[in-house]
Design a protein around this nucleic acid. Structure first.
Length: 269
DNA sequence: ACGCAGACCTGTACGC
DNA sequence: TGCGTACAGGTCTGCG
């Protein structure tokens, strides 16, 4: 569910509201996360420092005073959310992990239980393998090289986190539409000009989505439980049967690489 | 190396 | 109302 803009939104909000708070206890309520209770003594008493996004994950910096910092790395996957409550909230059966703070708590809530929470001891382990879009490495030249042996659809290529980190189904649909590129095109068939357009449109769309605090569909809410504003900007995603805002053709939905894909055959060639 | 199918989970929407 | 089916924004594993 959450893609780069949604994770960035949550990380920025938590950075403001959590920085400086001391963790007083760790409560783990999901057997899939039973590696965490063993980290309880490490977490308790530590002070939350910077919260930031790395790839699609939220990293919470834990300051231990004299010792080196560690990080709590949270991947929200499809339905994960992080909520910072000023006081203890009403029961929610989908709370998986709760960090008790000096004031209130931080809840990791995840209905489908796909999300992950791990403790990271080395800064190097935080860095995802794919190219970060907001980095100097995200260039048309680099992407052309990366895709040189990829014969599968560009739609699937852009979703690969070991190539580019942060894009998910919604933004890939929107980027390909903005570029006028069919999601069926083989990744290695894109020209240097196509890749330049992918770079430009990816940065434009992600920047706008971050400004609007992401896209809310079913499950995404930010750390305050409010919804993102990018849904109103979507040109094709979840708009099957509706007119394409660029050419007036009809947007279609079809499965590509087993993922629901929305695009306009009229202007994406 | 690649692409593809299936798995992981739960909830919601919809048709009968 | 209840049941069955399809679908959901992510990523890993195993197979060919």
């Amino acid at each position: 569910m959450p893609e780069l803009p949604e994770v960035e939104t949550v990380a920025r909000q938590l950075d403001k509201s959590l920085s400086g708070q001391r963790i007083s206890d760790l409560i783990v309520l999901d057997s899939k996360l039973d590696h965490l209770p063993g980290q309880r003594s490490l977490l308790c008493g530590s002070r939350l420092d910077t919260v930031f996004r790395t790839g699609k994950q939220v990293a919470l910096t834990l300051n231990h005073g004299t010792r080196d910092p560690t990080w709590l790395l949270v991947h929200l996957r499809m339905t994960g959310r992080l909520f910072h409550h000023q006081s203890l909230p009403e029961d929610n059966k989908h709370v998986r992990v709760r960090l008790l703070l000096e004031k209130g708590c931080l809840d990791f809530v995840d209905t489908r239980r796909f999300g992950t929470v791990v403790v990271c001891r080395s800064r190097g382990d935080l860095i995802p393998p794919g190219i970060e879009p907001f980095s100097g490495a995200f260039t048309a030249k680099r992407l052309l090289e990366l895709a040189a042996r990829s014969t599968g659809p560009i739609k699937a290529f852009l979703l690969r986190q070991d190539r580019i980190t942060g894009l998910g189904n919604i933004y890939v649909c929107e980027i390909l539409h903005a570029c006028g590129v069919s999601p069926h095109r083989a990744a290695n068939s894109l020209s240097p000009a196509d890749w330049s357009c992918v770079v430009t449109q990816t940065l434009r769309i992600l920047t706008l989505a971050i400004e609007l605090c992401g896209t809310t569909f079913r499950d995404f809410q930010d750390s305050r439980g409010t919804e993102g504003g990018f849904a109103a900007m979507l040109a094709v995603y979840a708009r099957a049967g509706q007119p394409c805002p660029r050419c007036g053709g009809s947007v279609i939905r079809e499965a590509i690489s087993q993922r629901g894909s929305f695009w306009c055959p009229g202007c994406q060639g």
